[in-house]
Simulated scan of single mutants.
Amino acid sequence: MYKKYVPALLVCFFSVMAAHAQAPARKIDTTMKFGKSGYRIVCTNKNADKNLLTVKPINFEKEAGGDFTLDIKGRLLKTEVEDLNRDGFPDLLLYTIMPDDSLNRVNLFAIASEENKSVVPIALPDIYNDPKLRIGYKGNDTFFLMEGNLIRRYPIFPTEGAPAAAANGNMVRQVQYAVVREERGYKFKVVRTYDFTK
């Protein structure tokens, strides 16, 4: 069942900037649960440019199909599990980083459990496709989860259309995303955004 979705899952990778300059070159072998079900994530993190990532669903139904593996670019930086679409089942977020990337870009790979029978991708729209969010954006994002929503923060840099406070580097933009259903899986949708000074 999982293999059916692997090509679509790979499309879910999106590039963003991050404050992390380097990812630790250490093996990751962790189990994360939401309630009684969740995922075991294993990644050797040996290579700077490419690594094998294995995801083993825990307490999923038999028809789910078992483990699946992906080749990821860079190294696995962190993992999170949450019920992002509020259906009572665990969803998985995996963040990767390219240690030698001068732009410090981070990739997010996100999947949603379909009643613990299969998984489908959760896509995040490219920030550069949003006329409002891309104003003053030059990366250095941080991400965290809050009450089931994905939160993204980044400094606003001087550029045409950016707030005046961005000129001195004291302006930050926060974007709140919620997960909504699409024809083939889910996507992160902007539900709230505001700028504030540090």
Rank of each mutant, 00 (worst) to 15 (best):
N59Y: 06
M171P: 00
K78A: 05
G66S: 09
Y137H: 13
M1Q: 09
M1A: 07
P163D: 06
E82M: 06
D126G: 04
E182T: 14
P121W: 02
M32W: 01
N45I: 06
V106P: 04
M17I: 05
L108E: 02
V106F: 00
K189Q: 07
Y5I: 11
A64L: 11
A166L: 10
G66F: 09
D101N: 11
K73T: 10
A166R: 00
A8P: 01
L84P: 02
P125Y: 04
P90F: 08
I127T: 08
K33T: 12
Y194C: 09
Y154I: 00
V175G: 02
R184E: 08
G148R: 02
Q176E: 12
D67E: 13
T142Y: 02
P57R: 08
N104A: 10
N51P: 10
S37N: 04
P57S: 14
F68Q: 09
V120S: 05
Y2D: 10
V180Y: 08
A110I: 03
N170R: 08
L145N: 03
G35I: 13
I135Y: 01
A167F: 10
S118V: 07
Q174C: 02
K50N: 15
Q176W: 05
L52D: 12
Q176S: 14
S113E: 01
G148Y: 01
N168P: 04
E160H: 14
Y5E: 09
Y39L: 00
A21H: 12
M98Q: 13
D130I: 05
V81T: 02
Y194A: 06
R184G: 00
I111N: 00
I111V: 15
T142N: 11
R40P: 03
F157R: 14
I41L: 07
Q22P: 09
K132D: 08
L10G: 15
T197E: 15
V190K: 00
T96Q: 02
K4C: 10
N51E: 15
K73L: 12
N47M: 11
N51D: 13
D141I: 00
K36G: 11
N85R: 05
I156S: 10
D29Y: 09
K46I: 14
